Computed example of a mutant assay.
Amino acid sequence: MTSPPPPWQGVAIGPPLAGGPLVDPDDPLAAEPAVETFTQAISHDLRAPLRAIEGYAQALVEDFGECLPPEAHEFVRRIRQARRTAEERVEALVGLTRVGRGALQASPIDLAPLARRILADLARAEPARRVATRVADGLPVVGDPALLGIALENLLTNAWKFTRGVPSPLISVGSTRADRSAIISVCDNGVGFDMRHAHRLGVPFQRLHASEAFEGLGMGLASARRIVERHGGRLWAESAPGEGATFHMSLPAGSVP
């Protein structure tokens, strides 16, 4: 299946209806621009307290470290980790709100060379891994090259991440046409997920896998989702536990040169 699912399935908000646009009640960034203003204010107001927490934790270890039992050192480590996590989440929220700002600089773009370059960069970052990749020739769309690059990189990075531990990892990128849309599909044979929880994908900080097993905040899909929606498209997924996942994004179709 590559055609967009009904509005209540997948990771995307459905298309506008006669009664008004659908709003995902789980998306804390759905009510813009008020949320953007709130996020910027929170980011500004939290930076100083977060720095103070780190400073006091460091001072505690430096000044009293020899007196602290091992359990206390572990508590300090957890405090510092919690501080880092809070800071990462604030920065991720700020970055996500920026995706929704500014005019789209739309132009014809072939996503195939971009996909190959992203996969090559991922391979260079982890030279010990051997991941087979397949990218179709010619993935023409019309959109903002910078934003679509972010969306594609997020999808491919997720595919790369969730194929860790697979005996013969494979990532493929292809395209089909549906009316005037191009459906770009990123497929992997990784750990997959239960489609009963697909509605949580693309929502900031919602994850389907334990953070101990796979790093991340769930912001990559949230960012990709918002970018695709800014182009008038949708992002949705197909998967099953242990059988990999395929993410589809519908975008304005381009023409092959």
Rank of each mutant, 00 (worst) to 15 (best):
R129M: 09
C187P: 04
G192T: 06
S107A: 13
P70H: 10
C187N: 11
L68E: 03
T97W: 00
T157D: 11
W160F: 10
L111F: 00
R80G: 06
R164E: 02
K161Y: 02
A151I: 06
V166R: 14
V166P: 03
P140S: 08
D194Q: 12
L119A: 00
G102W: 10
S168A: 14
A72D: 04
D194Y: 09
I171Q: 07
L119K: 04
G165S: 11
R134Q: 14
A103M: 12
L93V: 01
T85I: 15
R124T: 10
G143S: 05
R80E: 10
L96M: 07
N158V: 00
P167M: 11
K161M: 09
R83A: 13
V191T: 04
R177C: 07
L139D: 00
A128R: 15
E126S: 15
C67F: 14
A136D: 08
A92W: 01
I184Q: 05
E126C: 12
S181Q: 11
E87N: 09
H197A: 15
E66K: 11
N189P: 03
R164N: 03
R134V: 09
I109T: 06
R124D: 15
K161P: 02
V142S: 09
S181W: 03
V142D: 06
V94E: 01
P167V: 07
A86T: 11
R196T: 12
R83D: 09
I183W: 04
T133P: 00
L201F: 13
G102A: 10
E71R: 10
G190T: 00
L114P: 00
L122K: 06
R77H: 14
V191P: 05
I183C: 04
A112R: 01
P169S: 05
R130H: 13
E71C: 08
L119D: 03
E126N: 11
I171R: 06
A159S: 10
G174P: 03
A136K: 09
R180V: 07
R89Q: 15
L111R: 00
V173P: 01
E91T: 06
A128I: 15
L111N: 03
R200W: 12
I79S: 06
E91M: 06
T133R: 07
